[in-house]
Amino acid sequence: MSASPTFTGSAPRGTRVRATLRSEWIKLWSVRSVPVSLVATAVAMLLGAWLLGAGYQSEWHEMAASERTSFDPTYACLQSANLAQLLIGALGVLTVTGDYETGLIRATFTATPQRGQVLALRAALFATVVLLLGATVSLAAFAVGQSQFTEPVPHATLGQTGVLRAVLGVGLYLMLIAVFGMGLGVLTRSTTLALTALFGILLIVPSVLTMLPGRGAEGILPYLPAVAGSQVLHVVRSGNSLGPWQGTALLALYVATTGAAALVMLRRRDV
């Protein structure tokens, strides 16, 4: 038998990591749901800042004295992050479960058998996009909201203590939620289950705890992922909540744990 010919069309270009990054970048931007959801997030943030800013401005004189003293003009404009987290979290889930539910994941892992690398780099890319977009949109939302406030409504500027941190914190918070959603997506491999888990943890558990009387429930509340993580958005700190960086670190810990569990499952399971 003659020596069997080798078939390697052309030598691969670049390193393994760079190839995976390039591939995941192409995937990220080549489905419509990604740009659509990101634009929707930006619109929700800006519209929310504008409406809420106008609302507070027009009815400031009706507010009680206690409400006025605890008024946080920064958070008032950034609250729509609560809405944006639904979009970004769901998009995070979909970037993973979409692959599993269509079966595309098999093609992905056939092209790159290093499964952990694929998902870790996908998460890194998506997280970076969300961080940058979140921070940029948040700056704009802050500007839109503050432009509504005139005397006597207090007006925040980026130079004040904690304000810049809160504004850029939107990007940080949304980024962590996005990766949380991706981790849950890998663990469940199902859009429905992952969304239920994500929204359950972020929204349902805190509502349930606030219904219970007594110190036990009140004591747990600040340590829940969404409650802890969203402290970074507040300039005026309330009651027994965690500090902004403590809260963010705790949310990051939850997300990292979920991510680690996801990577372990990814390695162990059949695709």
């Binding site: 809420l52 507070y56 400031w60 009706e62 609250q79 609560n82 639904l86 979290g89 929204l203």
Partner: peptide, 21 residues
């Protein structure tokens, strides 16, 4: 599902802080 959560759970708590005017 995101829409349902937004309408029924998130939106109400967000606007609730506004003055009742």
């Amino acid at each position: 599902v995101s829409g349902v959560f937004a309408i029924l759970l998130v939106l109400p708590t967000m606007v609730d802080n506004l003055p009742h005017k």
